[in-house]
């Protein structure tokens, strides 16, 4: 796959309040009975959306939004990449929030969805403001790690390794890892549990 650098994401946002929203809620287990990720977007947050009719993913005014705003520990729990795949296929291209589950964060990175961390106060401001101005575009800049909405520019953070992967276009790491070539085999030959004790 050709490296694609991701520096900027522009789009409307969808606010999703709530702490500790786990990947079972993003895509319930029964939808993991599949051998492809195709069509998962139809079931994103399915059980929450059934139980709460005003769930943001049910609201017409957020249709077409590409930036998801969340609170704390979003995507905790199961390692299922089905969760970020469902969000991506629904149209999400970046997520901003107070914090993220670690495996979810790396799964998002691996499929090209930057997750930016904000101060709680800024995240809450964004959730609130987006809900009042769903038509307003946001601009995420990974060079400066900032999120701009209207006149206001919020400073965000992102682990430097992931940020570099986006900027360098190596977030899909297979090719980069392959480039180590023989060094991989040399390392394997130094491990006693591989060559035999």
């Amino acid at each position: 796959m050709k490296p694609i650098s991701i520096r900027e994401i522009r789009g409307r946002a969808i606010p999703l309040p709530g702490n500790d929203i786990d990947t079972d809620r993003i895509i319930p287990g029964r939808f993991l009975r599949c051998v492809t990720f195709e069509g998962l977007e139809e079931h994103v947050f399915e059980d929450d959306r059934q139980q709460y009719k005003d769930h943001p993913f049910n609201q017409e005014r957020y249709r077409g939004a590409s930036i998801l705003i969340v609170e704390r520990n979003f995507g905790c729990g199961s390692s299922r990449e089905h969760a970020p795949q469902a969000l991506f296929r629904w149209g999400i291209r970046a997520i901003a929030g107070i914090s993220f589950g670690e495996i979810f964060f790396s799964n998002c990175t691996a499929i090209g969805i930057p997750c930016l961390t904000l101060d709680a106060a800024d995240a809450h401001w964004l959730l609130e403001t987006v809900s009042h101005h769903p038509d307003q575009e946001l601009n995420i800049d990974l060079e400066t790690v900032t999120i701009r909405m209207g006149e206001r520019t919020l400073r965000a953070t992102m682990p430097e390794g992931a940020r570099q992967q986006f900027l360098q276009g190596t977030w899909d790491s297979t090719q980069t890892l392959l480039e180590a070539g023989e060094a991989i085999d040399r390392l394997a030959r130094r491990l006693p549990y591989i060559v035999g004790f």
Partner: peptide, 18 residues
């Protein structure tokens, strides 16, 4: 480490993770 599917691909192809 628990990993996702894209990382499974990385491990299958390279036996490595970033």
């Amino acid at each position: 480490f628990g990993i996702g599917t894209s990382q499974i691909r990385d491990v299958l192809v390279t036996q490595c993770l970033a």
